[in-house]
Amino acid sequence: MPEVPYKEFILRRLHSLTGIVPMTVFLAEHFWTNSYALQGAERFNEAADHIRGFPYIILIEIFGLGLPFAFHIAYGIKIIYSGDYTIYANNPAKNWMYVLQRVTAFPILAFLVFHVITIRILHGIGDDVDLHATMVDVFANKFLLAFYVVGIVCTCFHCANGIATAAITWGLTVGPTSQKVAGAVAAGVGLVLSGMALWSIRGFMPEAAPEAAEAIEAMKAAPETVLYLIESLRGVIA
């Protein structure tokens, strides 16, 4: 096979690109759909069915999402392997962002695999699907709920920081000022995404009070995680 010129360069830029489109774009769409749950099970199921009913949905899912995801993950592992994880004392905030971007990849990956297998594959195929009910069952388990919260927060951080660094990589933000502004915008995107996702979990809480209380108890982890996210992102803004 002939040597592809600039292979690493192209792969690395593709890695950056796949992180933004389709992943971040898809995420926004996904969380938007989730938010229908706040309007009730029926509305949510309608929205989900609408999407699942897209023409060519299998092709979109495989080639528009699955393959880019798989590539992003595979090449991301290479990137993670090639990095150093000591913190330089003169630059802790941004160095931590570098580390977190890589470290969060692992919970994200675990969450993603679990989520896709359990929801999309095991419960999401067929004509008679009640995804809302499935999710209510999932969130009734407080460990799974916590797992979801962590997964969502890590994903949103990874996206937000990814947007900020992609802007540098592609040369959109060159100077410190534009990088700060882009960092703030990216942090905003991350907060909106995670806020939307976490808030919409309320739409999947069971009616029965005891379980709900338990679930809400478990969700206390969420604000803390979000606060941590904000703290981390302040590094970008600072």
């Binding site: 360069f9 690395r12 990137i79 990095g83 330089y88 003169n90 160095n95 570098y98 990589t169 990088q179």
Partner: peptide
Amino acid sequence: IHECGNAQNCVAACPKEIDLTD
């Protein structure tokens, strides 16, 4: 250049205050 990971340590370490990240 694609190998840069945007940790931005370089600019903090440069004794001559070169705007390396720019």
